[in-house]
Amino acid sequence: MESDVLVVDDSAAIRKILQRVLRQTGMAIRKIHEAGDGQEALEVMKSQSIHLVLTDINMPKMDGIQLLGALKSSPQWHKIPVVMITTEGGETKVGEAVRLGAAGYVRKPFTADQIKEKLAGILDPALPV
């Protein structure tokens, strides 16, 4: 089955890089959707069938932690894996993301291989995330 992926970052540059990396992973992707903040992401979630979310943490309007909380508390979306891709390395925000149910965490700057490895772990339940 082909997946729809949502990339959430206020940086258009990072969204473009992640689009390119996702296309290189070999994942069966139908479409990659984009959003510039958490609020936009929720709008996309309402209108599309999303299977995986990659999100930054520090964003205007609604940040990645708030978005993660909204998704994990929703009966409709709580099973969708959410991967945090962010500059934040502090235990406070990373710990909060883990507590809220983030499927993984990649720290910026990242290599394409780091993203691929993280997604492989998430898509294959046998591998650690």
Partner: peptide
């Protein structure tokens, strides 16, 4: 984004 990543890494 370059600024975010460099200063963000220093911050961490």
């Amino acid at each position: 984004e370059l600024t975010n990543m460099i200063v963000g890494s220093v911050k961490n």
